[in-house]
Write a protein that binds this DNA or RNA. Structure first.
Length: 577
RNA sequence: CGGGGCGUAGCGCAGUCUGGUUAGCGCACCUGCCUUGGGAGCAGGGGGUCGGAGGUUCAAAUCCUCUCGCCCCGACCA
C-alpha cells in the first residue's frame, strides 16, 4: 500500500459512467457485456473503442503494474511513433509478408506508411543508429502504446480489437547467453505482473508465428471463453498451446490381418463423417489426405487419421514453409488427378507426403482413390503406399500422451494476455543492427520481444472475476478500491459521515468513489455491484442510530457492521488483505 | 474472403412476409408530485431523414436494385 500519496477521489455524480440495465445485442462474451454495461467502454467502429473514465482507470492501473515490473527488470520506457514508414518494413521484408492485417496509408506526398501493429522495425532502427558497442548491451526498451491491426474479424470487445493498447518490449544482447538472461528476466517479470493483477494464469510454450524467431511462451489467463486451447500435462509441468503441443508417439497397434486393397464406390461421399457412415467403419480407420499449398506454388500432402485433426502449423514448420493453406480445387486436381474429397496417398507421386504417427495404427484403412466417387479399402501403410516421412503433425487432443513424460494431456482454454519471444537475429540481420564486440568484430545483436495486451488483460480479469450481478475487480486493478454509498442524499448526518470517510480514505492513499447521486438505494446498489468496486461502505440512517455502518466485500458478498470509528481501519485491512 | 443474420429514438425491441391513420412498446432522459435498505409509483413531456442512394407505385420502414455499417460461424492471426 502506498501511503505516501493521496488516493484519487471522485464523486459519482460528476463522472461519466453510463451503465446499462440490459446486455448490448452485439456483445457475446461476459467481459464485453460487462465492460459495456458498467460504462467502461463504448464502440466507435468495429474493433475500435473509447475508454470511458472507469475503463480508462482500469487500463491505467494495469499499465502502472506493468511499468513497475518492467522497470524493476531493468527495462527502459520509451514511446515510438504509431505511424511508421513503409521503407523500414520493406527492409525487414514484412511489408510484403504481413498481409492485409497491416493498415497501410499514404501521406500527402504519396509516401507509404503503415499504422504500427508492432514495433520491431522501429526499435531496430533506433538501436542500430544509436548503439555500436558491446559495452552498451544488453539493452531492453519498452513502450505502452496504441497499436492497430486490421483483424479479419475483431470481436469480443477489448479482447480482440483492431486498435488496442499494448506493452511491447525489445531486448538486445551480445550473445545467446545474454538473450537467455533477458528472456528469463521478462518471463519472471510477466509472472509478477499477472500475479499482481490477481489473475490465474499459466505460461505455456507457443508457436512463434509470423513474427519469427525460435522460442516463445504465451501467458494464458485460464477462462472458458478463451480463444486459445492449451494442452497441459497431468503429471509433469509441460504446457503448450495446442498449436504447438507435441504428442508422444504411441506404439502402433498390433498389426491385424490386412485384406486386399479394393476400390469401392462412394458417390458424393467426401467428408470423413460421410465416408465413415456410408462404409460403416469408424473414423479412426480412415486416413485423411490433406493437400496443402504455400503462397509460392509448392504443394504437399499431410496424412492424419480420420478422427484426428491436421495441425497446419506443425506441418508448415515441418515443410519449412512461410505460409500454409489447404489447397484449392485446382491444386488438388493437379496433385492427385481427382477432385477434392477423394484424395488418397496410394499412387501419389511428385509431392512430399508427410504422415502423422497416428496412421501407423491403421491396419485396414480407408482412403480416397484420387478419382471421383471412389475410395479404397484395406489400405495399409508401408504396403500400399510409403510416406516420405512420419512426424507429429496433428492437433493435440484431450488424453494424448505428453511428449515429455508418460502423463496425459488435458486441454483447457485460455486468453493470451502476454507473449514473449526470442527473436534471434531475424531483424538485426535484415536491418543491419550490429555492434562491435570486444575483439572489434561486427556482429548482429540478438533480439527478444515481449508483448502484453493491456486491454485484453483487463478483459481477461473480468472473465475470471464476475458474478451474475457484475464485475468483482481484484483490488490492484479496480478503478477504485472503495465505494462509499450513502443511502440518502438528504439526511445531513449520512451525507456528512460519507464526506468524512471520503476524505479519510483519500488521506490513507485509497482510491475512493463517493456515490453522491440522489437516487434510490436499490438503484445505487445495482450500479455498485455492476461496476464491481471491491469494498463498499454503506451508510444509512438506520445503522447510524446504532452508531454503525456496513462494510461489504464485493467478491464474497460478506457484510460486516462496524462502529463508525472502525470503518476506515476495516476498509484498509480489507483492501490490503 | 466464403456462409448466415441484423440496421426503426441513447439502449433493448415490435411493425416489413401481405405497401395505405399521426411509426409503436419497454428502459433511459426532462418537468412536477410522491418515494428512499436492492434498478419504485402517478401525471405530463422531449427525442426518429425507419443506415444511405436510386427505382416501382396514387402511396414505401414495408417491394426491387445498388451501396455502407454491424453481428455470428468458418478461414486468418505477435
Amino acid at each position: 500500500m502506498r501511503f505516501n500519496r493521496r488516493g484519487v477521489f471522485m464523486r459519482y455524480s460528476q463522472l461519466l459512467i453510463p451503465t446499462l440495465k440490459e446486455d448490448p445485442a452485439e456483445a457475446e462474451v461476459v467481459s464485453h457485456k460487462l465492460m459495456m454495461r458498467a460504462g467502461m467502454i463504448r464502440k466507435l467502429a468495429a474493433g475500435i473503442y473509447t475508454y470511458l473514465p472507469l475503463g480508462y482507470r482500469v487500463i491505467r492501473k494495469v499499465e502502472q503494474i506493468i511499468r513497475e515490473e518492467m522497470n524493476r527488470a531493468g527495462a527502459q520506457e520509451v514511446l515510438m511513433p504509431a505511424v511508421q514508414p513503409a521503407s523500414l518494413w520493406k527492409e525487414s521484408g514484412r511489408w510484403d509478408h504481413y498481409g492485409r492485417e497491416l493498415l497501410r496509408v499514404r501521406d500527402r506526398k504519396d509516401t507509404e506508411f503503415c499504422i504500427g501493429p508492432t514495433h520491431e522495425e522501429v526499435v531496430t532502427d533506433l538501436v542500430r543508429m544509436n548503439v555500436r558497442s558491446y559495452r552498451e548491451l544488453p539493452l531492453n526498451l519498452y513502450q505502452i502504446q496504441t497499436k492497430f491491426r486490421d483483424e479479419i474479424r475483431p470481436r469480443f470487445g477489448l479482447m480482440r480489437g483492431r486498435e488496442f493498447i499494448m506493452k511491447d518490449a525489445y531486448s538486445f544482447d551480445r550473445d545467446e547467453a545474454g538473450v537467455d538472461e533477458s528472456y528469463r528476466k521478462m518471463f519472471d517479470a510477466y509472472c509478477r505482473i499477472f500475479e499482481r493483477c490477481g489473475l490465474e494464469f499459466r505460461a505455456v510454450e507457443a508457436d512463434t508465428g509470423t513474427i519469427g524467431g525460435n522460442f516463445s511462451h504465451e501467458f494464458m489467463v485460464m477462462a472458458e471463453t478463451g480463444e486459445d486451447a492449451v494442452a497441459c500435462c497431468d503429471s509433469c509441468s509441460y504446457a503448450a498451446n495446442t498449436e504447438r503441443a507435441g504428442i508422444r508417439k504411441e506404439p502402433a497397434a498390433a498389426s491385424g490381418k490386412a485384406g486386399t486393397l479394393e476400390e469401392v464406390r462412394t458417390p458424393g461421399k467426401k467428408s470423413v463423417e460421410e465416408v465413415s457412415a456410408f462404409l460403416n467403419v469408424g473414423p479412426e480407420k480412415l486416413i485423411k489426405t490433406l493437400i496443402v499449398m504455400d503462397g509460392e506454388g509448392h504443394a504437399a500432402v499431410g496424412l492424419v487419421r480420420g478422427d484426428h485433426e491436421l495441425n497446419e502449423i506443425k506441418l508448415k514448420n515441418r515443410l519449412g514453409w512461410e505460409t500454409i493453406t489447404l489447397a484449392d480445387e485446382e491444386t488438388v486436381q493437379k496433385v492427385t488427378g481427382g477432385p477434392s474429397g477423394f484424395s488418397g496417398p496410394v499412387g501419389l507421386t511428385g509431392v512430399p507426403v508427410i504422415a502423422d504417427h497416428g496412421i501407423l495404427s491403421v491396419t485396414e484403412g480407408v482412403t480416397g482413390a484420387n478419382r471421383a466417387d471412389l475410395h479404397l479399402v484395406n489400405v495399409r501403410v508401408n504396403r500400399d503406399f510409403t510416406p516420405d516421412a512420419f512426424d507429429d503433425i496433428r492437433i493435440a487432443r484431450e488424453g494424448d500422451g505428453c511428449p515429455r513424460c508418460s502423463g496425459r494431456l488435458k486441454i483447457s482454454r485460455g486468453i493470451e494476455v502476454g507473449h514473449i519471444f526470442k527473436l534471434g537475429t531475424k531483424y538485426s540481420e535484415s536491418m543491419g543492427a550490429t555492434f562491435l564486440d570486444e575483439d572489434g568484430k561486427s556482429r548482429p545483436m540478438i533480439m527478444g520481444c515481449y508483448g502484453i495486451g493491456v486491454g485484453r488483460t483487463a478483459a481477461a480479469a473480468i472473465e475470471q472475476n464476475h458474478d451474475p450481478d457484475g464485475i468483482c475487480w481484484p483490488v490492484p486493478i479496480a478503478p477504485f478500491s472503495a465505494l462509499i454509498l450513502p443511502l440518502s442524499a438528504k439526511s445531513k448526518e449520512v451525507v456528512d459521515l460519507a464526506e468524512k470517510f471520503y476524505g479519510a480514505l483519500r488521506e490513507k492513499g485509497i482510491d475512493v468513489l463517493l456515490d453522491d447521486r440522489n437516487e434510490r438505494p436499490g438503484f445505487k446498489f445495482k450500479d455498485a455491484d455492476l461496476i464491481g468496486i471491491p469494498c463498499r461502505i454503506v451508510i444509512g440512517d438506520r445503522g447510524l442510530k446504532e452508531g454503525v455502518v456496513e462494510i461489504k466485500e464485493r467478491r464474497t458478498g460478506e457484510m460486516t457492521r462496524v462502529a463508525v470509528e472502525e470503518a476506515v481501519p476495516k476498509v484498509l485491512s480489507l483492501i490490503s488483505g
